[in-house]
Design a protein around this nucleic acid. Sequence first.
DNA 1: CGTTCAGTTGACTAAGGTCAATTCCCGTGG
DNA 2: CCACGGGAATTGACCTTAGTCAACTGAACG
Lengths: 192, 192
Amino acid sequence: MFEALKQQIKRFVKISEAEWQMLEPHLKTVHLKKHQNFCKEGVKANEVGFVLKGMLRHYYTRHGEEKTTYFYFENHFVSSYISCISGQPSQLTIEALSDCELLVFPYSKMAALFEQNLNWQKFGRLIAEYLAIGLEERMVGLLTLSPEERYLELIKSNKTKIIERIPQHYIANYLGITPVSMSRIRNRVSKK
Amino acid sequence: MFEALKQQIKRFVKISEAEWQMLEPHLKTVHLKKHQNFCKEGVKANEVGFVLKGMLRHYYTRHGEEKTTYFYFENHFVSSYISCISGQPSQLTIEALSDCELLVFPYSKMAALFEQNLNWQKFGRLIAEYLAIGLEERMVGLLTLSPEERYLELIKSNKTKIIERIPQHYIANYLGITPVSMSRIRNRVSKK
DNA sequence: CGTTCAGTTGACTAAGGTCAATTCCCGTGG
DNA sequence: CCACGGGAATTGACCTTAGTCAACTGAACG
């Protein structure tokens, strides 16, 4: 039942069965319909999710527009991480892009595990490190590559299937350009 | 002697004197002359530093150009974090922008502390979280603000004194624009 | 069958990039 | 003390590319 999650956790840290049992009772399965929110701007978040099925996007509202800056797929953790950590209201909204099935547990419970157990604390560190590395790469891409280069990079490193699965105007946001420019870049690139 | 470092660590986690003593013997003071490197592209990094005096920049080489993406000042940790964590050669170079005085300790030692002690493990997590939050903010700024807006934000949030202390062409890199554009933006802004 | 919304395309604008010349600043050496 | 050299910053002219606005197409859905 919880095998997928267990396996992902074990990619980060070797937990014993006893340690796993510290978490398991707090897991709940949650279904989200397309367009439902996992968390919402202005509301304090206290949930960490793990995507079993479906995909979600994560966006900020700026100048009255939704700017999508991240996507979540199967076997990944999803959360308004900053809000959970800081205890401040979330700046971002996470919305289901398709019907989703998630495993959910309260961040407060996770935080308690961190305090109780070295292995869980380590898990917390490794997750944060993983996140930071991803963000650093993303940032360097934004600073050193042109929109077109970023688009080509995204296609090349196709780990996440973003190109195939996500509507184009969200990807444009993700790359830091407008949907119109994105369309032109695609056109340009396809002619080469 | 090590008070400044101790104090910064304590902003993240309450360590006991005994825990502090796990680290202290491994600390070394290092002086860097302006333009010397703390770590270098292509070389595996295994050092974490803490800036006592001076400032440094952190850059990637892309298309044959140095792209400065971060600065370090007094009382902050400095390291090619990704290289330390991953064990891969560093992609980035960290260079002193002025004569610097650093406290340095091996990351391998830090990693050992993580494994031995819950509090140090927690420190590792909190540092990584802190890093991730900073990177997330930076990324969202790059995705949602124009160069001019980013420049104005940088001035407004003047925590780091970047504007006063860092040569302009490095700041331009940091904002994702050319030095020439940076100069024009300054000109434009000053006339408003 | 009509409404809606994503994606494309065209015309135009605005803003940053590029290249080059010039000025400014600062340190060094005559 | 002044002259020179070198790098940083500014400025101008021009180019490239993304943004904006709007019209149009096409697919999805009720």
